[in-house]
Amino acid sequence: MAEKNRDFVKGLWEENPVFVMLLGMCPVLAVTSTATNGLFMGLATSFVLFGAGIVNSLLQNIIPDEVRIPSFIVVIATFVTIVDLVSRAYFPGIAEQLALFIPLIIVNCLILNRSEAFASNVNVLRAIIDALGRGLGFTWALTFLGGIREILGFGTLFRGTESVIQVLGEWYQPMLIAILPAGAFITLGIVVALFNVIMDESFSIKDLFGGTAAVEKEQTA
């Protein structure tokens, strides 16, 4: 049981696909201009991760090694096409926003990584738990980045939905660069840096102000 909990938490936090593994950078950089887009992209990717994880885990003894990559890709592409069709039928607004980035989930290296390195080597239950952990980890990371960029660039959260929140008032002059592609790189860089600080257990806030302590650490690292 403990092992399964680990599988879940790993994807969510200590092996977060975005902030630690830096996998699937194309959607991370391209569609996180708003929290809405980030959330939807994260959920779409999670669904594919989930479906492909189950199928590829079940088929692990049937698929011969030599054709495993093409087989995985066909399975992944099937689930991506399902997401694409369903979102265009039921969520036309957001589907149009994300447009070609949904079909591109097929080549998101996070999904192939999980199928190849994990799902095809473990039982279905572990594959499901892993897919849920990584999927949620990916989703919160994208929503978080999208949220930061949206607040800075528009002053709102969850634009384009009915529950849009006006975070900053009329006085706020939007910082355009946050929602431009350059803003994606800068925001991601800063968040990854903060994540590293938080994750580094030997690093305490005191070190930041402790003068030479940080330097010594750097030298011995």
């Binding site: 049937i62 698929i63 011969p64 054709v67 093409p70 066909v74 069709l85 265009r88 039928a89």
Partner: peptide, 27 residues
């Protein structure tokens, strides 16, 4: 190799035909 990959592709095609049938009118 050929058999497995072909079967997977056929299964995929069947699933997608079914989904497309459901969603095409809506789209």
């Amino acid at each position: 190799l050929i058999l497995v990959l072909t079967l997977i592709t056929i299964a995929s095609a069947i699933v997608l035909t079914f989904i497309d049938d459901l969603t095409a009118p809506l789209i």
